[in-house]
C-alpha cells in the first residue's frame, strides 16, 4: 500500500504545483509573457492570510477571501504599473521586469517580516485518513480537491461565459479582438486577477501543508510550477493541471524509489526532455509562424 500512498502524496503536492502553473499559463496565454513574479504572488497570498488570521485575529473565511482579493489586486496593479508600459516592446524587457518585480516583492517582505519563518495558522484539523492501509493527510486531500474544483470552475468560465470568450479572443489575436470591441486592457487585468487569486489559494495550501512561511517560499515553488506549465504546454489550462500532477508524482517517486538527492534533477530533467522532444508541451498546439 506504500506505493499507492506515494502516488497520493505526489498528487497532492502536484495539485499545488498545478494551481500555480495555471496562473503562469493563463497569463502567458493572454498577455504572451512569462510572469516570473508569480511565485512571489503566492508568497504574498500566504502572508496576507497569516496577517489576517494570526495578527488581526480574523475568522478563517475572512482571511481566505482577503488573501484572494489582495493577491488579485496585487496582480492587477503589477500588470498596470510594471508590464503594461512595456507592452509592445521586446519580450526580453518584460521578462527582466518580471524578475525585477519578483526581487522587489521578496525583499519588501523580508524588510516587513524579517527572514525568520512564521508559523501559518491551523485552518483545519490535522490528521490522516487511513483507507486499507493507504495513509492520506486531510490537508493533502483538500489540496487535491481544491485543484480539481478550481480547474473545473476556470474551464467552465473560459469556455462558457462571455468574459471567457473575450479572453480566448484576446489570446488568439489581440488586434482583431480589439477591433471587435473587446476591451483588451480589462481582459488582461482580469486574467492577472484570476491567476493571482489562484496563487493565493496555492499559498494558503502551502502554509497549511508545511506550516512555515518565509519570504523565499515562492522561488522554488514558482520554478517547479513553471516547469509544470511548460510540460503541459504553456497557454493550456488542462495542460498546466496535468503537468503539475505529473511533476508532483515524478518528484514523490524519485524520492521514494530512486534517491531523494535526485528529485530536483528529475524535475529539471523533465523540462529539458520536453523541450527537446516536444517543445510545445503535452497539450500544446504547434502554431505555424505566418510570414
Amino acid at each position: 500500500m506504500g506505493f499507492i500512498t506515494q502516488i497520493m502524496n505526489g498528487l497532492s503536492t502536484g495539485g499545488m504545483y498545478a494551481l500555480v502553473a495555471i496562473g503562469y499559463t493563463m497569463v502567458y496565454g493572454i498577455a504572451k509573457m512569462i510572469n516570473f513574479a508569480h511565485g512571489e504572488f503566492i508568497m504574498v497570498g500566504a502572508y496576507i492570510a497569516y496577517v489576517f488570521t494570526t495578527m488581526l485575529k480574523m475568522p478563517i473565511f475572512v482571511s481566505v477571501i482577503a488573501s484572494i482579493i489582495g493577491c488579485a489586486l496585487l496582480g492587477v496593479i503589477t500588470e498596470k504599473v510594471a508590464y503594461k508600459p512595456l507592452r509592445g516592446s521586446g519580450s526580453l524587457s518584460v521578462l527582466i521586469t518580471a524578475i525585477g518585480v519578483s526581487y522587489l516583492l521578496q525583499n519588501l517582505f523580508l524588510i516587513l517580516f524579517g527572514s525568520a519563518a512564521r508559523t501559518f495558522p491551523t485552518y483545519m484539523k490535522s490528521g490522516t485518513l487511513n483507507i486499507f492501509g493507504i495513509r492520506i493527510t486531510y490537508i493533502s486531500l483538500l489540496s487535491l480537491c481544491l485543484t480539481l474544483v478550481c480547474t473545473g470552475i476556470l474551464l467552465f468560465f473560459i469556455n462558457k461565459t462571455r468574459l471567457g470568450k473575450a479572453m480566448r479572443a484576446v489570446s488568439e489575436d489581440r488586434g482583431a479582438a480589439e477591433l471587435m470591441g473587446i476591451n483588451v486592457n480589462n481582459t488582461i487585468s482580469l486574467t492577472f486577477a484570476i491567476g493571482s487569486g489562484l496563487g493565493a489559494i496555492a499559498g494558503i495550501i502551502y502554509g497549511m501543508s508545511y506550516s512555515l512561511i518565509n519570504p523565499y517560499l515562492g522561488a522554488m515553488l514558482g520554478i517547479k510550477a513553471f516547469i509544470a506549465a511548460v510540460l503541459g504546454g504553456i497557454g493550456n489550462i488542462q495542460g498546466a493541471m496535468v503537468g503539475g500532477l505529473i511533476i508532483g508524482v515524478a518528484e514523490a517517486f524519485t524520492i521514494a524509489y530512486i534517491s531523494s538527492t535526485f528529485s530536483d534533477a528529475v524535475v529539471f530533467g523533465i523540462l529539458i526532455f520536453i523541450l527537446l522532444v516536444k517543445p510545445a508541451g503535452l497539450f500544446g498546439k504547434n502554431v505555424r509562424e505566418k510570414v
Partner: peptide, 8 residues
C-alpha cells in the same frame, strides 16, 4: 518543503 514521501 514537502516531507510526505520521506515520512511514508
Amino acid at each position: 518543503k514537502d516531507f510526505k514521501t520521506y515520512i511514508e
